[in-house]
Every structure is written in C-alpha cells, then in structure tokens.
Design a protein around this nucleic acid. Sequence first.
DNA 1: TCGATGGCTTGTA
DNA 2: CTACAAGCCATCG
Length: 193
Amino acid sequence: MQDVNEVIISNYMSNGLYFSVAASNSTGKILKITLPKQSEDEANDEIIEVHPNFKLSGEYRDVAKDISGIYHGKKTGLELDVLELDVDKSNRQLPVKSEFMRNVLVETFNIPYGEVGTYKSLGDKLGTRAYRAVGTVMARNPFPLLVPCHRVVKSDLTLGNYGGGREMKREILKKEGVVLKGDKIIKKYPLRQ
DNA sequence: TCGATGGCTTGTA
DNA sequence: CTACAAGCCATCG
C-alpha cells in the first residue's frame, strides 16, 4: 500500500454547519472526518493541518452529506469499508496508528444507532482494562460521527467527555432517542454493554 | 527509553 | 451527592 500523497476534500453544509471529509486519492478510502464547524474554511483547515497536500472536489460530497445527517440524528447507510483502517506501520500519514486503536474504532462502529456503550464495555470486549486508553482513542477518533464515539459514555452512564463538547454529545444522543436526565442516561434500554 | 498524561473505573470516606 | 486515591495501560515526547 502506497503512501498517502494527496487527499481529496469534499464538503457539505446543512443548517449553517460545515462538514468536511478527506479521502485518499489512491485508495478512495476516507482518512478524516470533521465535526461541524462554523465555516467551510474552518472545517477544511482541520484536515489540511494533517494533510497539507490536497485538492477540493465534490467527489465525496455524498459522504459528507451522510456525515452531516448523522449529526442531525439520521441513520447512515455507510459501511465500515469506506474508512481507511489500515494500521500506520511506518510513517504513511494513515489515521489509524495501532492495532489497539483500530480494534477500539471497529468496536465503536458496531454500537447501533440509539444505543450506547461505555469505555469499560469496549475495553472488556477487547480484553483490556486500559479504559483510559479507550478514551484516548475516542479523543483521537479520525472519523467522528461515522465511528460513533458520541455513543460511548462512562460506566455510570453519565456522558463523559467529547471532542465537540459535552453539549454536542448530549444533543446528538437525544436526537437518536437516547433518554437523558442532565448528564445521565436514565433509560436503561436501548443500551449496549 | 522512560516518565507523564489521559473523553476512565473502582473503592473508600 | 462529592472528593480523593489508586489502579489500569496505550500513547507521546
């Protein structure tokens, strides 16, 4: 597999919020997704920071639209195989940095719409007690929304932290039908442990 | 290489 | 309910 030399950035705007996705020009796989931003530049800049060689194109606009949909509470038909999940064994600018990171991201992807998992439940599935390390993977998730780290909460069912802020996490979960009281999920089910 | 740092968890008070 | 300590272990500089 060759290096990522150039990425294709596509955008989508909805309700004044801008989303960007970056795909590899060689494999077509998604390398990075941004959370909603106030402007297109702001969204693009987050990607360009990591991938300075880029071109803008509408090629992945449909993907960006789906990402925007997830933010607004819709389900997505996108599958895991749109993502670049190869582990970055050397210095190839790939987003997934370790087997551990890949495993955590895949497990997170499998948390269904409207359900939640916990940092602990993910760790347990992977046979590790490195719950904090699970949180670190969430914090560095290159594919927010599509890999639904917003559905990963603390073991006491309070929200925990989120890259886009706790408020954003709460709002997305509410749109998915998760019932909260303050920072705590009160509805016992649906709940994925 | 090794210590510091985390979107955490559990136990104790 | 809050507060703090200790434990965990992958990652980063």
